[in-house]
C-alpha cells in the first residue's frame, strides 16, 4: 500500500470547521463597503474626461479667437475668411422683419463671419456670428446638416434664442443675441457658445 506522508495532515485539515454564517456575513458586508467606496470613486472619475474635453474645447476656442485677445469683434468676424451661405444671410435678414418697435436687432449681415467649423459624422457644422449696430450685440447662427430632411430645427438642445440654419431648409428659432459692451467676447459668452455647440452635436447624435 502506498503511503502518502501528508495523509495525517490532510486528515487533520478535514476536521477544521467551515466559517460560521455570521463570519461570512460580516466579511461580505465589509467587502461590500469597500465596493461602495470604489463605485463612488468610479462615478466621479466618469465625469472627468467629459469635463476635460469641454475645457480643452473651450480653451481652444478662447485661444483661437482674436476677440478674446482684445482685438474686438471685428477680429472675430474676420477670423476665418468666407461669406455665409445664402440660407444664413436670408435668415439673418428676416430677423427684424415684423419686429415690434424697439425690438429689432439691427444686424450687420455683411459683417457675418465664421467662428467655428467642424466635420462631424453628420456632415459639416458651422457657427456664424453677426454683429448688431451699436456694437453691443451678436447673433449666432448654427449651420448643421439634418439627418431626416425635415425643416424643423434642433431647438430642443439649442438655446431658445439661437438661430439654426440647415442646408435642407432653414427656420428661425428666435431672436438671437449676446450682449457685449466692449466689442469683444467675455469668457462666459464663449463658454455659452461652446455649450450650445456641444448640446447641438449631442442632439444630432440622439436624433441619428
Amino acid at each position: 500500500m502506498k503511503i502518502d506522508e501528508f495523509d495525517e495532515i490532510r486528515e487533520a485539515w478535514a476536521q477544521v470547521p467551515e466559517p460560521t454564517q455570521s463570519a461570512r456575513v460580516a466579511a461580505r458586508r465589509r467587502l461590500k463597503a469597500a465596493m461602495a467606496v470604489a463605485s463612488s470613486r468610479r462615478s466621479r472619475r466618469v465625469f472627468r474626461p467629459q469635463v476635460l474635453l469641454a475645457a480643452a474645447l473651450l480653451i481652444g476656442l478662447l485661444a483661437a479667437v482674436p476677440a478674446f485677445s482684445g482685438t474686438g469683434y471685428e477680429g472675430v468676424i474676420n477670423w476665418l475668411t468666407g461669406d455665409p451661405p445664402k440660407e444664413v444671410v436670408e435668415n439673418l435678414e428676416r430677423m427684424d422683419q415684423g419686429a415690434p418697435a424697439g425690438m429689432a436687432q439691427h444686424l450687420i449681415v455683411g459683417k457675418t463671419g465664421l467662428v467655428y467649423k467642424r466635420q462631424t459624422q453628420f456632415g459639416e457644422v458651422r457657427v456664424w456670428l453677426t454683429p448688431a449696430k451699436g456694437g453691443d450685440r451678436f447673433c449666432r447662427s448654427f449651420e448643421a446638416p439634418r439627418p431626416d430632411g425635415k425643416t424643423r430645427p434642433f431647438t430642443r438642445r439649442v438655446w431658445r434664442n439661437a438661430v439654426v440654419v440647415c442646408p435642407c431648409g432653414s427656420e428661425v428659432a428666435g431672436g438671437a443675441s449676446y450682449p457685449h459692451s466692449d466689442g469683444g467676447f467675455t469668457p462666459r459668452q464663449f463658454a455659452q457658445l461652446t455649450f450650445d455647440l456641444l448640446s447641438h452635436l449631442a442632439g444630432l447624435r440622439r436624433f441619428k
Partner: peptide, 30 residues
C-alpha cells in the same frame, strides 16, 4: 472565502480567522 477562512484558522487561530479572512478579501478588492 471558506478555504481562506479555514486556512487562516489553521494558521492564526479560530478567533483571528474571522477578521483576517474578511480583511483578506477587502485588501484583495482594493
Amino acid at each position: 472565502f471558506t478555504l481562506v477562512h479555514r486556512f487562516l484558522q489553521a494558521r492564526a487561530g479560530g478567533s483571528a480567522a474571522d477578521d483576517l479572512a474578511a480583511e483578506t478579501f477587502e485588501v484583495a478588492f482594493r
